[in-house]
């Protein structure tokens, strides 16, 4: 669980400035990381995060499970990022859901709890187990959020056209490694 309100009997529509600031302190950096990891530049990522907060404000009267707020915020940020990214001309492998239409109907992604620095630290140890070029490529993308494919290609001395497919293969290897040897959240 990522967040607990002090008294679970308090309905969300009574959240005050203090409770809200706790939510912000707990999730703002994580939501930023999600928006950036979804491929947005800094300005669009800031909009995606604020958009998620605004969606929560307009939906809060209808969300009755305080324990689900963290997952809801992460998922909303990711989907808002996909939507804004598509408007900005980026291409994504799947169509974003219609968050704009029905934010309260959103089903949180099942894996949002891994968006956590402690999990990330352990995750780095898994990355170090990967063979090359995956180890270097995933490090480059993780440590250089604004890196373009041409820069990564130059750094790794591979054709630009092979960066995308290699990244997909490396991410799949990491997911396989995690499936075989899961980390504790």
């Amino acid at each position: 669980m990522l967040f607990e309100v002090h008294d679970e009997s308090i309905p969300l529509d009574l959240l005050d400035d203090h409770a809200w600031s706790e939510l912000v302190a707990c999730f703002d950096s994580r939501m930023w990381a999600v928006a950036r990891a979804a491929g947005l530049g800094a300005a669009d990522a800031a909009d995606a995060v604020q958009g998620a907060w605004l969606r929560l404000v307009e939906s809060v009267d209808r969300i009755r499970d305080p324990q689900a707020i963290g997952a809801w915020l992460m998922t909303t940020t990711r989907r808002e990022a996909l939507r804004l990214g598509r408007k900005a001309g980026q291409e994504f492998p799947t169509d974003p859901p219609d968050l704009y239409e029905h934010p309260t109907l959103l089903t949180p992604d099942p894996t949002t709890e891994i968006v956590d620095a402690d999990y990330g630290r352990t995750l780095w140890s898994r990355v170090s187990r990967l063979d090359e070029p995956c180890r270097t490529m995933l490090r480059l993308f993780a440590l250089n959020p604004d890196a373009r494919y041409a820069q990564v290609a130059s750094r790794m001395q591979i054709p630009v056209g092979s960066v995308g497919p290699t990244k997909i293969r490396c991410s799949a290897k990491l997911r396989t490694l995690l499936a075989e040897d899961p980390l504790e959240c």
């Binding site: 990891a37 968006v115 620095a117 959020p145 997911r175």
Partner: peptide, 22 residues
Amino acid sequence: DDTALETYLLAAMRLAAHADPP
């Protein structure tokens, strides 16, 4: 689901590395 997981994994790695402060 894989797309979502990949996004969250990358986000977690960046949080741990303080690679991209908000």
